[in-house]
Simulated assay, not measured.
Amino acid sequence: MQVSPTDLAAFPGAPFVQEHINAVVAKLERALGWHVAPSKEETLTVRAGGDRMLVLPSRKVTAVAEVRSGGAVVSSGDYVLTGAAEAMLEGYWSGTYEVDVTHGFETVPADLLGEIAAACVAFRTDPSLAAWSSGPFSATLRGPGQGAGPSSTFYAYSVNLGV
């Protein structure tokens, strides 16, 4: 998702720092399990075990261009959207497929902006957390009894998963 401090300016706790917004947005998309906004074309890898529907891991699918298995095209352009919960392709599906989709909202839905702002406030007010980054995962923590002022000493921790 692309959210800026300007998008959140009207919410309690504003102004927000872009780095905090980015961390909250990354966490939200991981929790949701799908790309929210903006709309983009992407290839999803989906596994099925002899099912009548191939469930795509996204809620806002606007187009399915092609489905491949082992490099061979098995379906093109037909899908059934079952409510707001998921997109499914009808047929018999067994194995692993690459599905070229267009998915995501054009802009971040307004109801999510309030959730992002609230999470930014919580993120900012955590007394142990001074900074956070999302990829390749790092955090800067305050030591015990240290304030948030400019003379505070911070302990930095980072994790590189080799991804």
Score class of each variant (00 low, 15 high):
40 K>H: 12
142 R>N: 09
107 T>I: 01
124 R>F: 00
20 H>M: 04
25 V>P: 09
160 N>L: 06
46 V>K: 08
135 G>V: 11
44 L>S: 03
151 S>M: 06
154 F>V: 15
20 H>A: 08
136 P>N: 10
24 V>M: 02
148 A>T: 12
142 R>K: 09
82 T>D: 13
142 R>L: 12
59 R>A: 03
118 A>C: 01
90 E>Q: 15
106 E>L: 08
98 E>K: 08
73 V>K: 07
1 M>T: 12
24 V>H: 11
75 S>N: 12
70 G>C: 07
115 E>N: 06
148 A>M: 05
11 F>W: 14
31 A>V: 11
124 R>K: 12
122 A>I: 02
50 G>N: 08
22 N>M: 04
87 A>L: 03
59 R>W: 00
42 E>R: 11
45 T>I: 13
51 D>V: 04
38 P>N: 07
32 L>T: 05
21 I>D: 05
62 T>G: 03
39 S>Y: 00
130 A>G: 12
64 V>I: 09
68 R>Q: 15
146 Q>G: 01
119 A>E: 14
145 G>K: 06
84 A>M: 07
95 G>P: 11
18 Q>A: 13
6 T>P: 00
66 E>F: 00
88 M>C: 11
135 G>K: 11
124 R>S: 12
75 S>T: 07
109 P>H: 07
114 G>H: 08
106 E>C: 01
99 V>F: 02
73 V>F: 08
67 V>K: 00
106 E>V: 01
129 L>M: 10
163 V>H: 14
110 A>G: 01
163 V>Y: 12
53 M>V: 12
119 A>F: 02
125 T>Q: 15
153 T>P: 04
109 P>C: 01
111 D>M: 01
18 Q>I: 03
118 A>H: 04
47 R>L: 03
96 T>W: 04
25 V>Y: 02
17 V>G: 09
129 L>W: 04
5 P>F: 02
73 V>Y: 09
132 W>S: 15
54 L>M: 09
73 V>C: 07
50 G>M: 04
64 V>P: 06
28 L>P: 03
82 T>Y: 09
123 F>N: 13
53 M>T: 12
159 V>I: 14
115 E>Y: 02
65 A>M: 09
149 G>K: 03
29 E>W: 05
120 C>R: 01
23 A>N: 11
62 T>E: 05
25 V>S: 02
65 A>R: 13
155 Y>L: 14
62 T>W: 00
116 I>Q: 04
91 G>A: 03
67 V>S: 02
23 A>Y: 13
102 T>Y: 00
59 R>K: 13
91 G>K: 03
129 L>N: 05
9 A>K: 15
84 A>L: 10
85 A>N: 13
54 L>A: 02
139 A>P: 09
78 D>W: 10
117 A>V: 05
20 H>P: 00
108 V>M: 10
27 K>H: 13
10 A>Q: 15
55 V>S: 09
23 A>E: 10
149 G>W: 10
46 V>S: 07
127 P>N: 08
53 M>E: 14
122 A>F: 03
124 R>D: 12
18 Q>P: 11
132 W>E: 15
65 A>V: 07
55 V>H: 08
78 D>T: 14
59 R>M: 04
3 V>E: 04
92 Y>S: 13
135 G>A: 13
74 V>C: 07
40 K>I: 02
30 R>K: 14
